[in-house]
């Protein structure tokens, strides 16, 4: 009964959504290959000549230190997925939990506190906040992740709160209350499962936001500390492009674009299938 709302929705995924899914799966497999040690392992060795052209030895050429751009771009897939998965899962979970409590106990002190905290975090300019967290937690490799999780949850919490407020007046929740089930059980069994579609969409949006933010932070010197990422490659390339060497820039930006496009298409298709707008002029 709890999942009746979900079950009734017909999952119709569009062609562009399917394209997105294929792209995301392709990159995910690439990330798995890097995790397993099958690809991208030679990303840090500076064993080539500087700015070598693409060819059979260096597929995408080399950067100004003579590192293999292809290896670095492939290894960065793993970095992107690590950041994306950690940030989107934890920020969505945090947002869902706080939003559910706020919605379930709407117009109480708990609700007010959650809304206040979300309002406060939204009022601090984002990159400034992230920079400050990264600085406060300097040395910790997770500083960037913590900063993103601490700010990304607010949007999810607001949506989850609104949805929980809607669901809690529905019949199946009222009847669960009438037979005396404890609140937490109703929340876990009947309410949260019905917000899953929102959480799924939010998670995919956070994934995109996390990867995009990493790029900016890495450029500002506050991002990935050890390892390589597309953001670091782009930061390197800001000097290289002025000297006319575009391989690093092209490799990182095209891979980054494809993964982001895949996720955006996927999350668009998810939103459409859950909330089809009928209007037309």
């Amino acid at each position: 009964m709890a999942t009746e709302i979900l079950a009734r929705r017909k999952m119709r995924i569009s062609r562009s959504g399917l394209t997105g899914l294929v792209i995301v799966i392709f990159f995910f497999l690439l990330a798995v290959a890097v995790w397993a040690g099958w690809a991208g392992q030679n990303w840090s060795a500076a064993d080539g000549e500087r700015w070598a052209s693409p060819g059979s030895t260096w597929w995408f050429g080399t950067n100004q230190l003579g590192q293999d751009i292809f290896e670095r771009a492939v290894y960065s897939v793993r970095t992107a997925f690590e950041i994306g998965i950690v940030v989107s899962l934890l920020s969505t979970a945090l947002g869902a939990a706080l939003g559910a409590v706020a919605g379930w106990r709407s117009n109480t002190l708990a609700d007010g506190t959650v809304l206040w905290l979300a309002g406060v975090l939204d009022s601090i300019p984002f990159y400034l906040f992230v920079a400050a967290v990264a600085f406060a937690l300097q040395g910790l490799p997770w500083a960037m992740h913590v900063a993103m999780i601490a700010t990304f949850w607010t949007a999810t919490a607001r949506l989850a709160r609104a949805e929980v407020m809607k669901i809690k007046s529905r019949e199946f929740v009222l009847s669960a209350r009438a037979i005396g089930l404890p609140s937490w059980l109703i929340l876990m069994r009947h309410v949260l499962p019905n917000t899953l579609h929102i959480l799924l969409i939010q998670a995919s949006i956070s994934f995109v936001a996390a990867i995009k933010t990493e790029v900016i932070l890495s450029f500002l010197g506050l991002g990935v500390q050890d390892g390589v990422s597309w953001g670091l490659m782009l930061a390197e390339s800001t000097q290289e492009v002025l000297a006319g060497h575009f391989n690093n820039f092209l490799a990182a930006s095209i891979m980054l674009f494809l993964l982001l496009l895949g996720f955006n298409l996927l999350s668009d298709a998810l939103q459409d299938s859950f909330d089809p707008k009928q209007a037309a002029l």
């Binding site: 995009k212 790029v215 900016i216 782009l234 980054l256 982001l260």
Partner: peptide, 8 residues
């Protein structure tokens, strides 16, 4: 447009 990084 949404899939292209600010930096790019």
């Amino acid at each position: 447009g949404m899939s292209i990084s600010f930096l790019v």
